[in-house]
Simulated scan of single mutants.
Amino acid sequence: MRISTLSRAVAAEFAPEVTYLNTSSWGLLPRRTIAAVKALADENAAGRRVGVGDFEAVEAARVGFARIVGVHPDRVATGSSVTVHVGLIAASLPPGAEVLCPEGEFTSVISPFAHRGDLSVRYAPLAGLADAVRPSTALVAFSAVQSADGRVADLDSVRAAAAAHGARTLLDCTQAAGWFPLDAGAYDYTVAGGYKYLLCPRGTSFLTVTEEAQSTLPRLFAGWVSAGPPWTSNYGPQQRFAPSARSFDEPPAFLSYHGAQHSLALLAEIGPDALHAHATGLAARLRAGLAELGHPAVSSESAVVAVPGLDDRAPGLVEAKVAVSAPAGNLRISCHLYNTEADVDRVLELLARGVAER
């Protein structure tokens, strides 16, 4: 998709009232997504629907996500949050298993392991994560793109090191899926929250599991949707499970998934290559401008730009109707499909004028 076509698609779907550069916190909902959620809510309120939603919407979202991350839909489980998916993986490990994570990793990726109580959780700098894998490592759990500062992990090196030592891999794609080219099939497990760069309503998340790794996960959250065909296993103990990652599905938040299918379809229409080029191009422009102002950003070819020590500027930018965030002492500015060069230049202009400078 050409950039001009991308611009037309964005104009049809988004109308933010602020300069929105905070997708790393949550993504804007497209108009088509909002319309689908409202339509289902109206049907539920009026009693016009049998049931509270359609599993066809869940399947459409599953297929849409699978297309984005390059796997077959049978490898995708749907759920409500990354924490629940990671908790399932944490429950699969034997007592004493060693889990390796980057220092400063997002809490949802590490807390289910750290708080189980009988696992050995070890941390290493992100840049040295591959070198820190050792024969005793059972699992390497890390994010493709760091939430705090946008750094992109050396995916190939970590994956190779894990394979060399027989360790499994868990990749959190929450800050990457939607703009960063991914091959989820190269990892034992991937997880992704849908409400950031995938532009889905909150309450959508996705777990991918290789066919081999599916046998390692416990039926910890087995329920009536785990059987596969809807409405066929509603009573009594679960007797059968879907012969795919669908067996790890959670009961869906239908309002969220009715919207999610449309958000994921929009991303597919734009295409990963055009979106990656657009987002990282804006981020590169922003980094160059920040350097000229004497505010060097964290070095990374990422759509997420972080400036250490400039977090105190965030309130002033927000007051000036520029949506940004300030995690871990950084001013964090994230670029996505609905952002423009004008958005980037506005941030640079405000920072040059000393907005909220202390």
Rank of each mutant, 00 (worst) to 15 (best):
E301C: 07
I333P: 11
G271W: 03
A260I: 15
S300H: 05
V322E: 15
G294H: 07
G316T: 01
E319I: 03
E292Q: 07
R313T: 02
H295I: 04
P251L: 13
A245Y: 12
A297R: 07
S244Y: 13
A277V: 04
P296N: 03
F254M: 08
P327H: 02
L337I: 06
G289F: 13
G329R: 09
A253H: 15
F254T: 05
A274S: 15
D273K: 14
A314I: 01
F254G: 02
Y338S: 05
P327E: 03
H262A: 08
A268P: 10
F248M: 07
L337D: 00
R313H: 07
P252V: 03
S263H: 05
A265T: 14
L282E: 12
A323S: 06
S325G: 02
P272A: 14
V305R: 01
A268T: 11
F254C: 03
L266V: 01
A283S: 14
L317Q: 05
A274K: 10
G289H: 03
P315R: 02
A284S: 15
A323Q: 02
V318W: 13
A342T: 00
F248K: 07
S325Q: 07
V304A: 00
P327K: 02
L331I: 00
A260P: 08
A314Q: 03
L290H: 04
T340Y: 03
P315E: 08
G309A: 00
P252C: 03
I270P: 09
A253P: 08
R287Q: 13
R287F: 05
H278S: 12
L267I: 08
G316P: 10
S334P: 03
R287W: 04
A326V: 06
H278T: 12
D311A: 09
T340V: 11
N330T: 00
S302F: 01
E341I: 05
G259S: 04
V322D: 15
R332I: 04
S256G: 07
V318K: 09
G259A: 07
V324A: 05
S247C: 14
L255P: 12
T280H: 09
A303N: 08
N330K: 00
L266F: 02
S334N: 02
L286Y: 06
P252G: 05
E301W: 05
L267C: 06
V305E: 11
D343M: 01
A245R: 04
